[in-house]
Amino acid sequence: NLYFQGLKYMVPGARVTRGLDWKWRDQDGSPQGEGTVTGELHNGWIDVTWDAGGSNSYRMGAEGKFDLKLAP
């Protein structure tokens, strides 16, 4: 699974964008943008601060869902 392989790169400072299971509307800005991981992966959740200004926790394994992917 590509998403599980990418988890080791989901570290503080990593750049991310919305992924396969995104369901959080425009939390990442409008139009959709990139963000920066600000915390360690914990119980399948990870913290992100978006360039647009907001921050929140997103699923990276929790509930079998992956809200994020590494930015290109």
Score class of each variant (00 low, 15 high):
residue 40 E to T: 13
residue 54 G to H: 11
residue 24 W to E: 07
residue 35 G to V: 03
residue 56 N to D: 08
residue 44 G to P: 00
residue 65 K to C: 15
residue 14 A to Q: 09
residue 10 M to N: 01
residue 36 T to W: 07
residue 18 R to P: 07
residue 37 V to Y: 00
residue 38 T to Q: 08
residue 11 V to I: 12
residue 32 Q to W: 11
residue 21 D to Y: 06
residue 21 D to I: 04
residue 37 V to C: 07
residue 64 G to T: 05
residue 55 S to I: 10
residue 62 A to Q: 02
residue 15 R to D: 03
residue 64 G to C: 14
residue 24 W to D: 08
residue 63 E to P: 00
residue 21 D to K: 03
residue 14 A to G: 04
residue 37 V to A: 02
residue 51 D to P: 00
residue 18 R to H: 05
residue 44 G to V: 04
residue 52 A to F: 10
residue 4 F to T: 12
residue 18 R to D: 02
residue 10 M to P: 04
residue 25 R to C: 15
residue 43 N to S: 10
residue 56 N to W: 12
residue 72 P to G: 14
residue 58 Y to Q: 02
residue 33 G to H: 07
residue 36 T to K: 04
residue 22 W to H: 04
residue 23 K to T: 09
residue 72 P to M: 12
residue 49 T to Q: 12
residue 13 G to I: 04
residue 24 W to M: 05
residue 44 G to L: 03
residue 26 D to E: 11
residue 48 V to G: 00
residue 55 S to T: 14
residue 16 V to Y: 02
residue 55 S to Q: 11
residue 3 Y to H: 14
residue 22 W to L: 05
residue 46 I to M: 07
residue 3 Y to A: 14
residue 10 M to T: 04
residue 54 G to Y: 10
residue 20 L to R: 13
residue 17 T to K: 10
residue 7 L to W: 11
residue 21 D to C: 07
residue 2 L to Y: 11
residue 52 A to I: 06
residue 18 R to S: 03
residue 34 E to T: 12
residue 2 L to W: 10
residue 59 R to T: 01
residue 18 R to W: 07
residue 17 T to D: 03
residue 43 N to F: 10
residue 71 A to T: 09
residue 3 Y to R: 10
residue 17 T to S: 10
residue 6 G to S: 14
residue 60 M to V: 08
residue 45 W to K: 02
residue 45 W to F: 05
residue 25 R to V: 12
residue 47 D to F: 13
residue 37 V to P: 00
residue 61 G to D: 01
residue 44 G to I: 03
residue 70 L to F: 15
residue 16 V to Q: 00
residue 7 L to N: 08
residue 19 G to C: 08
residue 44 G to W: 03
residue 52 A to Q: 10
residue 43 N to Y: 10
residue 12 P to K: 12
residue 41 L to S: 07
residue 57 S to A: 12
residue 15 R to A: 01
residue 16 V to M: 00
residue 48 V to F: 01
residue 65 K to S: 09
residue 5 Q to C: 15
residue 52 A to C: 13
residue 59 R to D: 00
residue 39 G to E: 05
residue 25 R to T: 12
residue 41 L to V: 10
residue 1 N to C: 15
residue 57 S to G: 06
residue 33 G to A: 08
residue 49 T to M: 11
residue 16 V to R: 03
residue 29 G to K: 04
residue 59 R to M: 01
residue 27 Q to D: 09
residue 11 V to Q: 10
residue 50 W to I: 00
residue 33 G to M: 08
residue 33 G to C: 10
residue 15 R to K: 08
residue 47 D to Q: 14
residue 37 V to D: 01
residue 42 H to A: 12
residue 66 F to Y: 13
residue 25 R to Q: 15
residue 18 R to G: 03
residue 43 N to A: 10
residue 69 K to L: 12
residue 61 G to N: 02
residue 20 L to D: 14
residue 36 T to A: 04
residue 26 D to Q: 09
residue 5 Q to T: 12
residue 70 L to S: 07
residue 29 G to M: 04
residue 16 V to F: 01
residue 56 N to R: 07
residue 39 G to H: 08
residue 63 E to I: 05
residue 41 L to I: 13
residue 52 A to S: 12
residue 53 G to W: 03
residue 1 N to H: 14
residue 47 D to E: 15
residue 42 H to L: 12
residue 13 G to L: 04
residue 4 F to Q: 13
residue 65 K to R: 09
residue 43 N to W: 09
residue 2 L to F: 11
residue 70 L to G: 04
residue 52 A to G: 09
residue 37 V to N: 03
residue 19 G to M: 05
residue 7 L to D: 07
residue 50 W to T: 00
residue 67 D to W: 01
residue 36 T to V: 11
residue 71 A to C: 12
residue 36 T to H: 03
residue 9 Y to T: 08
residue 29 G to R: 03
residue 56 N to A: 09
residue 49 T to D: 09
residue 34 E to K: 11
residue 43 N to H: 12
residue 15 R to S: 02
residue 26 D to M: 07
residue 72 P to Q: 13
residue 34 E to W: 14
residue 30 S to C: 15
residue 12 P to N: 09
residue 3 Y to Q: 14
residue 40 E to L: 14
residue 64 G to Y: 07
residue 45 W to R: 03
residue 16 V to A: 00
residue 45 W to Q: 01
residue 23 K to P: 08
residue 53 G to Y: 03
residue 64 G to I: 06
residue 43 N to Q: 11
residue 34 E to C: 15
residue 11 V to H: 09
residue 30 S to H: 14
residue 21 D to W: 05
residue 32 Q to D: 11
residue 32 Q to V: 08
residue 44 G to A: 02
residue 17 T to H: 08
residue 70 L to C: 11
residue 42 H to Q: 11
residue 61 G to Q: 02
residue 71 A to P: 04
residue 35 G to T: 01
residue 59 R to W: 02
residue 5 Q to D: 14
residue 33 G to E: 06
residue 1 N to D: 13
residue 42 H to R: 14
residue 7 L to R: 08
residue 48 V to L: 00
residue 29 G to W: 05
residue 62 A to F: 13
residue 7 L to E: 09
residue 30 S to V: 15
residue 46 I to Q: 01
residue 65 K to T: 03
residue 3 Y to F: 14
residue 42 H to Y: 12
residue 54 G to C: 13
residue 45 W to T: 00
residue 10 M to C: 09
residue 33 G to V: 04
residue 24 W to N: 06
residue 55 S to C: 14
residue 18 R to V: 08
residue 58 Y to T: 01
residue 1 N to R: 07
residue 4 F to N: 12
residue 71 A to V: 14
residue 4 F to K: 10
residue 32 Q to T: 10
residue 60 M to R: 00
residue 7 L to Y: 08
residue 8 K to P: 10
residue 59 R to C: 01
residue 18 R to L: 09
residue 32 Q to F: 12
